[in-house]
Structure formats: C-alpha cells, structure tokens
Nucleic acid binder design. Structure first.
Lengths: 222, 222, 222, 222
DNA sequence: AATGAATGAGACTTCATTCAT
DNA sequence: CATGAATGAAGTCTCATTCAT
C-alpha cells in the first residue's frame, strides 16, 4: 500500500523481489565453488534423492534455474562431486600406501589417511558412504558411477596382496582379508556419519587389534 | 477352480469395473502380512524416500488407498516395519549372547546370529542398514526411531562390559572396543547389501582376527 | 495455534482450499470424455506445444495432476486424440468413396464428407491440420504418428488410380493428380482453421472446376 | 578477408575467456543478416513457440543476450522476419501479375512465382506456412501480424476481379473463385513443407486443370 | 475392506529476458 | 557490441493422501 520503498533492509531474509538480470559483482568461480561445496555437504547428509535443486541453490545463494549454468542436471552435479571426491581420496590413499611395505603398515596408513580426510572435511567421508547407498537406490546414479566402484575395491585387493607376499596373510585367507578390509572401511564411513566422536576410537581399535594389543585371553572361561 | 460363473452377464463388453467395494473372501490378516513383507523388502532395497505407496500397494496386490486401512501413513508403515525388525533382532541377539561368558564368545555368537538372520531373510539385514541411512536423510524418520537406535547400541556396550570383567579388554580400552564392535556390525550390514558373497568371509575374518589367527608377523620388514 | 476453523464458505470463487480427496459424485466416464473433448479442441486451436496440461485440465474441470489418471503423458493424450480422429475420418471417407465409381465422383464425395465432418465438429478438421504442423515441429509427435500419415496418403493414391482406370486421368498425369488431391485437401483443412466461412465456397469451387463449369475462356486475350 | 592475426599471443593455454566486450573486427551488419537468416529458417522449420532464443543465437554465432542488441524481443524478431518476407513476396507477385491480362494467366504466373521463390529459398515458403499456424497458436503473434494477413488476401481478390472482368468467371462465382485461389495457395505452402518433391507436380496439376487438360470424361459410368 | 478419482504440494527443468562487465 | 550470470515464471510430471462409493 505505502510506496513500497526500502526493499526490506531490516531483517535477515534475502530481498524476495530483486530485479531480474545479472546481479552486480558476482564472480562465476566463486559461485561454482560454492555450489559444489554445498552440494557435497548436502548430498553427504541427505543423499541424492532427498536433496532438491532448491536446497542446493539456496544454500549457494542462487535460484534453482541458475544451477543449470554450471551443471546439466542434478545427476550431473552429483557425478561431478563424486569425481572430485574420488580423485582426492585416490591420491591420499596412494600416498599413504607408499609409506610402508607391510600389510599392517599399509592398512594402518590407509586408516590414518581416512581419518585425516574426515577431519579436514567431514563431508568427504559422509559423501563416500552416501554414494554407496545412492547407487543402490537410484539406478541412474549407479549407471554413471559404476566404473568408480571397481576402482575403489582395487585398493583393498592390492594391500592384501602385499600381506600375502610378506607372509602376514596365508594365501587361503586372502578372500577373508579382503572382506575384512572392505567391511572395516565401509563401517568407518558410516561411523563418521552417525557417531563422529567414535571415529578415532574405531580406528585405534582396529590398529590395536591388528597388532594384537587390544585383546587378551579371558581370565576365566565359561 | 470354483465355478467362477457369470462374469459378464449381459453384454459383450469386458467388464471394466469389477464390483466396487470389498472383494469377497479376502483375508485382512493375509493382506496385512503381505503389506509388511513387501514393505520390508522394498524399504531395504531402496530406502524410505525412493519407495512409493504405489510400489508397496501394487507389490502387495492392492491399491494405494487401501494401504490406509492398515497404516496411518507411509511413515507409520516404515516405523512398524522397523519395530518388527527390531524385535526379531533383539531376541536373536539376546539368545546369542547367553551362549558364552567371554567377550570373544559373545561377539562371535552375535556375528553368527547376524549371519543366520541375513541368510534366512536378506531383507532383514539390508533393512537395518537402510534405517541408519534413512534416519540421517529424513528427519521425520529420525524423530520416530530415535529411541530404538539407543537400544541397539546398548548391546555393544554390554558385551564390551563383559570383556572388561573377564580381563580380555583393558578398562581404558573400553571406548575403543565399543567403537570397534559398532563399526564392524555396521560394516557387515553394508556388506550384506552391496556384496552378499563376502558376508561369510567378512565374519570369518573378524572371528579369526579376534582369535589372533588371521595375521602373522611379516617375514621381512621395511 | 488457534483452531483454524471455517474454510471460507462465503464467496463465489471455487473454494481454493477444497478439502483433499475424491470430490463427491464424479463420474469417471464423463471426465474422460471431457478431457478428450477439450483436448481435441485445444490441440486443434493451438497445437501440441502451445497447449499446457493446465489448459486441458482446467477446461476439463480437474487439476493437472488428475490428467495422469487417464493418460500417461501429454504426448500420450495427443496421440490418443489423433487415433480417435483418424478412425472417425477413415470410416467417413471409406463410406464416401463407395458411393461412386469415377474419380470425379469419388473426389467430390470425399470433399463432401470432409465438409460434413467439419460442420459437425470444426475441431476435427482443425486438428487434422494441426497434426501436420505438430509432426514437423515436434519430433516426439512425428515418431508416434508416423504410421498414420502414410495411411492418410493412401486415400489420395487410391482415388487417382480409379481415375486412371476410368480414363479420366492419363497415366502419365498420375503424380500430378495425386499432388493436386493432396494439396486441395490440405488447403481445405487450413481454410477451415483460418476462414471457416470460405470452406463451403472452396469445396464448391473445386467441384465446379473439376466439372469444367467454373471457368470459361476470356472474352479478350492479352 | 582481413588478416585475422594474433589469436593467442602470450601463453600456451587455450584462452578460456576471450576478452569480454566487443570482439574486434566483427561487422554488426553481418551479424544482423545472419540472425535474420537463421531465424527465418528456424521459425520456418519449427514455428515460433518451438524455437528458442538460444537456438537462434547459437546458429548465428552469438549468445542469447546479444540478440537484444538487434531486436527487442523474440516476438519482435519474428515480426521483422515476417515483414521482410512479406515484402519479398509482395514484389514478386506484383511482377508476376503484370505479365498477363487474364485470370488464368495471372494465376498461373502467381503459381510460377511461388514456385521460383520456394526453389530459391525453401525457407520462404515454409515460413509463410508457419506464420499462418503461429498466428492461430500465439495471440501475441496474431496481434502483431493482423494487418499483413489482409494484405495477402487482397492479391486473391484482385486476380479474381480480373477474371470477372474478362468473363472467365461468372460474377456470382466470385466468392468461390477467391476461396479456391486461397485454398490452393495455402495448400501449396503446406506441400512445400511436407512433401517438397510434389510441389512442382501440384502446380502443374492446377495449371492443367485450369486449362481443362487434366481431366477427361470417364469412359464408363457406374 | 477396497477401489479409484481427485487434490495440492513440490520436484526437475526450460526459457525469455536483464544487466554488470 | 558482446558475454555470461542470474532471475522468475512456467511447464511436465510424481506422489502422499483423502474420500465417495
């Protein structure tokens, strides 16, 4: 009714009737980074299906339509985030594995690398966990990410092979060892997501167990 | 079977609308069981968000509207399925834990119980994994299932307490052991969902490791 | 907070917050007929691309979502309307062609049939014109309707074949005659759409011309 | 033409953002012509509604925003293309009509002119057909092009008037003749769009029919 | 107890248009 | 003159839910 001046400068809400067109002083690179950052967090927290374009857009400070300047679709955004992630993890693990020549050494290094990554950016670990689930739940995601899944598993096979070579693992126990490594690493991504406080404990436990210093014989039997 | 007479009594047209209302000779209890069975499987496979009422209804041989005779909402269905599941698992674990007096014994029994459950009905294990994810992704689910999550964790605390009592676990390692048990059990639910073939291997690996028979010292150091 | 009573009962506008669920006393068959009727008219007037689901739905007295109880997609609706139309026209033309044994007779009968159809339901003729255009403009439409287009043309070939058999048309003029028949019938569908008042005139003109009674030699040459 | 030198002067990386602002050595008139050329083709093929600004822009080698330096809106572009077209056709028809003093002569000349135009630039003929449809489908187009439609029809009236003057057409047949001319010319634009191979045949057929050499009496009656 | 018509909210996506640079 | 980031409206379609029958 009144002359509608002063675009609501007094509260936190973004002015809803901004004029159309390009807003002043935007930096494409910033926006892009923002989008991918918030997308990683949101997908990590809620998964592919439960995150809407509107969620991503408003967290990045733009409108849903504007997303399409940066990605071709929501699926595309998800895939790109995953590829980034994959690359980061790959190099970290690569480095970690170089630091030792034994199974225990390499596995421990891998766990430490995972821990450090999770500390630096909790979304990384959560996202990895989310991807596994999203691939099961959304065929379109599975289709696009199929090749990366294999790549991931190769790490586990590789370090177990070392263990067999050093004599730490009996050849016939190879499948068991692979399954163990896989289960622990997957379990840890879930631990990060659900009870981050226990992440360090879980890793320490695994390392101690591998070294035989977590458990002793019971003092009394049943 | 029966005489199935008089489907179309008076004209040639395919009777397009079966008599409305309750079809004769359906058994409410059967339908209810069917609904919960298919719901468990579907939720286990695809999660809360990706399963529609139509999916559940048509898999159960009814229409979406009819679901509302049995549950108040999709969320309610999910919760009820989870409660059933929870109960089943609870009693199994309860039994398993009674069979031994040591941490290793109880933990091994728990893993075996988990394995047997997964063999009998793979949807059980998958569902448990799905619930953890769905609680993170859907606040409304988290709200309703919060109390059960605590209950689950109590098992882990209990068996570790036994380990401390028997001297298998040093008191200061208690948090580590709890985190380990938790991580392994969670990892196993994911293993069932993604690579069921490795489920047995993973369990055997954990048991061997606990007993100290999975790993030996490396023959050469770096 | 307050008890949120009184759903606005006092004004003439369709209550915008009607309670959800099935409205009383609806008849599925009526609604279906309504949808197809209004769809035919709207598609005829504005074509596939310019008609929205909302247009169709609100003209049929329902909401856009409800359309999906009757058709699988907008494209599906369009195709079904076209199939209906095709069938109607086919039988009419079939009958018309039976009434005479000469090219002129059959062609005239065809024109009369087209006229009657257009009189009975102007949307029929317009729709036929619209389809031709929509097939050019929307590949998805073309793909679904490809087979019908051929069927349509067969009529033109058939009556010209008769003309050749009766000696009305010289064999070498066959392609010309086919092109003429095609062009006139297509021109007429456009005439109906743009200047319905001239439809009868255009048909009479063609018939007179075929009979040689429209034109005479000029009284003076240039 | 010009020397086009120095694309990337100082570094090896593919320059990802060309210098913003006006690229050197582009010719506004060239760009303008390009825009109108591609617009004519695209509108002719797919119509007003199905052509996007992006389609036009990228076919013209620019970005959508740049279109707005040449036209005020998509509608404006369409209108301008139509005005160009109108002018071209007008002069051609004007010339054609001057070549003869009889209805048959003028009509034949008009058909030949239409044929030549379509041969020179098939987009012209298609566009004319498209406009008729787009006027029906998009009110905003109809509003802007209304006056031109009348102009077009005047040609038909004019040549029929000649026919009446020369005695070729009986005065009372005037409306029939006008409707016929209109229907044939419209039918031909559609023929060009859908079956260009039959365009020549259709024109020859009409001319032969006007001259009374297409049809003979049937050798046998039914 | 069950059907199936219908709603309304909301999802992803496209697009004409605007404007700082 | 041109780019490209951004908007906001609109479009197609899905889905949990309601309810007359």
């Amino acid at each position: 009714m009144a002359e509608q001046a002063a675009q609501r400068t007094d509260d936190g809400a973004r002015a809803p009737n901004r004029r159309r067109g390009r807003p002043p002083a935007t930096d494409s690179a910033d926006t892009r980074r923002k989008i991918f950052d918030v997308a990683r967090c949101l997908f990590a927290e809620r998964g592919y299906g439960a995150v809407t374009n509107k969620d991503v857009a408003s967290a990045a400070g733009i409108t849903p339509g504007a997303l399409y300047h940066y990605v071709e679709s929501k699926l595309d955004l998800y895939v790109q985030v995953d590829v980034d992630m994959q690359r980061t993890i790959y190099f970290r693990f690569q480095d970690a594995l170089a630091s030792s020549g034994t199974f225990i050494g390499k596995f421990s290094a891998m766990l430490e690398a995972a821990y450090e990554l999770a500390e630096e950016d909790p979304a990384v670990a959560s996202f990895v966990g989310a991807v596994r689930t999203d691939m099961r739940r959304h065929p379109e995601v599975a289709e696009r990410l199929a090749r990366y899944a294999q790549e991931r598993d190769q790490f586990f096979v590789d370090i177990v092979d070392i263990g067999v070579a050093t004599g730490e693992i009996a050849p016939q126990d190879k499948p068991l060892a692979i399954a163990f490594v896989r289960t622990v690493l997957i379990g840890l991504t879930e631990t990060v997501s659900t009870t981050p406080g226990q992440h360090r404990d879980a890793i320490d436990a695994v390392i101690k167990l591998l070294r035989g210093t977590l458990l002793r014989a019971p003092s009394a039997v049943d």
